[in-house]
């Protein structure tokens, strides 16, 4: 089949600045593959990111992008989506950005069930600030900010958090398998509602624990074990396996999907007039409006 947009159409002229071997290359490739497979018009995609190594991602694609401040990509994306719901809005960033400084927005964006796809490159470490603990760093992990006895907090589990907060498409993938990652990202973009794709994306420079090998030895495919992604209870049970309970088996794939819930945009009264960006400005009936004050 002849496609209108070639794979390269989606690539910008800017070369990624990530370390050789960084897991984020796979995520970039998966995202590019997904939007290519969907043949989305590059000018109708807006990719919003925060701050961190992974948040540089929008620069490497040829879509519209907004490289926001640290932790605030989601509200920027929500504002843009409400202003122009016709845009395909994708948010990218890291675990520090989304699960640390921005975790409040993360929860609220999910409970609203925005039609937004959130791709998190989770490397369980702060890379750009040179190796401090992140909200998903494993307990006991020694980092620059926890050099003596390691991390003493429990890690955030984004999958359980997403399920509890009302996300309607919840998946986890691994940079060691770009093909599956691309499929799950594509599914997330196609999904009408909030999609979280948590990508285990190893930091080869600062995280010497959660490496490609670490994951290869432990990951398994939920689909192959017969998990039913429409079953929320089963999704919670699978989510609880790691990191909460043990670290030997790590489930990957689609935990949960609910196609039957309205999106935030569906419920927003003011969007019934159409996309706000296309509305005429000003007031046609000022006398009627002023009469309220008489």
């Amino acid at each position: 089949m002849k496609m209108e947009f070639e794979m390269d159409t989606y690539k910008s002229e800017i070369k990624p600045t990530w370390c050789p071997g960084c897991g984020d290359f796979a995520v970039l490739r998966a995202l590019q593959t997904a939007i290519h497979a969907l043949q989305l018009e590059p000018w109708n995609i807006l990719i919003v990111s925060g701050i961190g190594c992974s948040s540089n991602l929008p620069h490497f694609l040829s879509t519209y992008g907004f490289h926001a401040i640290h932790g605030r990509a989601l509200p920027v994306a929500e504002g843009a989506k409400l202003a122009n719901p016709d845009l395909n809005v994708i948010v990218t960033g890291g675990d520090g950005d989304g699960y640390g400084i921005g975790v409040g927005h993360f929860i609220h964006a999910m409970r609203r069930n925005f039609d937004i796809t959130y791709v998190v490159m989770n490397n369980q470490i702060y890379g750009l600030t040179t190796g401090q603990a992140s909200p998903t760093s494993e307990k006991g992990m020694k980092t620059k900010s926890t050099p003596i006895e390691g991390v003493i907090e429990n890690p955030i589990d984004p999958i359980s958090l997403a399920l509890a907060s009302g996300a309607t498409y919840v998946a986890r993938t691994f940079s060691g398998d770009v093909k599956t990652m691309a499929e799950l990202v594509k599914g997330g973009i196609e999904h009408k509602g909030f999609a979280l794709i948590d990508c285990l994306s190893p930091c080869v420079t600062y995280n010497k624990v959660n490496t490609y090998d670490f994951f290869r030895e432990r990951v398994y495919d939920l689909a192959k074990e017969g998990h039913d992604p429409t079953d929320m209870k089963a999704a919670f049970a699978k989510a609880m396996e790691w990191p909460a309970v043990q670290r030997e088996r790590i489930p990957l794939g689609l935990f949960y999907r609910n196609k039957d819930l309205p999106t935030y945009e569906d419920l927003e009264i003011s969007l019934r007039k159409g996309s706000p960006v296309r509305q005429s400005l000003g007031v046609e009936d000022p006398d009627e409006l002023m009469a309220e004050f008489l």
Partner: peptide
């Protein structure tokens, strides 16, 4: 919205999108 951080950032997103 959930806080003023979000309020201002949403306003930025909406302004960027063109309203």
């Amino acid at each position: 919205v959930e806080d003023e951080l979000s309020a201002m950032n949403m306003a930025v997103g909406a302004g960027f999108a063109g309203v």
